[in-house]
Amino acid sequence: MVVACRRLKNHGRDTRGMFIHEHIGFNFSITEMQSVIGIAQLKKLPAIIKHKQEIHEKYVAELSDISGLEITPIDPRCQPLHWFTSFYSDHREELA
């Protein structure tokens, strides 16, 4: 397992510094500029989450009167980020 993880981290190479890639691998390193942008975005995170919650609530309020359309249940132990809002319907064709 350790070898497999090291290989993934090392662009799929078994030996560091070689340019032969025996396996699929990745390099998720980021630049200093990307780090700075990420830190700046983290400062905005509470506002972004609040805005996404407001969008979700608007979808639920505006679409709640449509018969046969059910909001996807959310486990009460969770605090979702609502990066999308999904609904269930047994009548997809009619809804479309």
Rank of each mutant, 00 (worst) to 15 (best):
V2N: 11
V2H: 04
V2Y: 08
V3D: 13
A4S: 13
C5R: 11
R6T: 05
L8A: 03
K9C: 04
N10R: 01
N10V: 00
N10E: 06
H11E: 06
H11A: 04
R13K: 14
D14K: 05
R16A: 12
G17E: 10
M18E: 12
F19T: 12
H21A: 11
H23F: 13
I24Y: 04
G25D: 00
G25S: 00
M33I: 13
Q34R: 11
V36I: 13
I37M: 08
G38C: 09
G38E: 08
G38F: 08
Q41E: 08
Q41G: 00
Q41L: 14
L42P: 00
L42F: 04
K43C: 09
K43I: 12
K44S: 13
K44P: 00
A47L: 15
I48L: 05
I49R: 11
K50G: 05
K50P: 00
K52D: 08
Q53Y: 11
E54P: 01
H56W: 13
K58M: 09
Y59S: 05
V60W: 01
E62R: 10
E62G: 05
L63H: 02
L63A: 10
S64E: 08
S64G: 00
S64L: 03
I66N: 07
S67W: 02
G68E: 06
L69T: 03
L69V: 09
E70Q: 12
I71K: 05
T72I: 04
I74S: 01
D75R: 10
D75I: 06
R77L: 13
Q79N: 15
L81G: 12
T85N: 04
S86L: 00
F87R: 02
F87C: 04
S89W: 04
S89G: 09
D90C: 02
D90M: 01
D90H: 07
D90I: 00
E93Y: 13
E93G: 03
E94H: 12
E94Q: 15
L95E: 11
L95C: 08
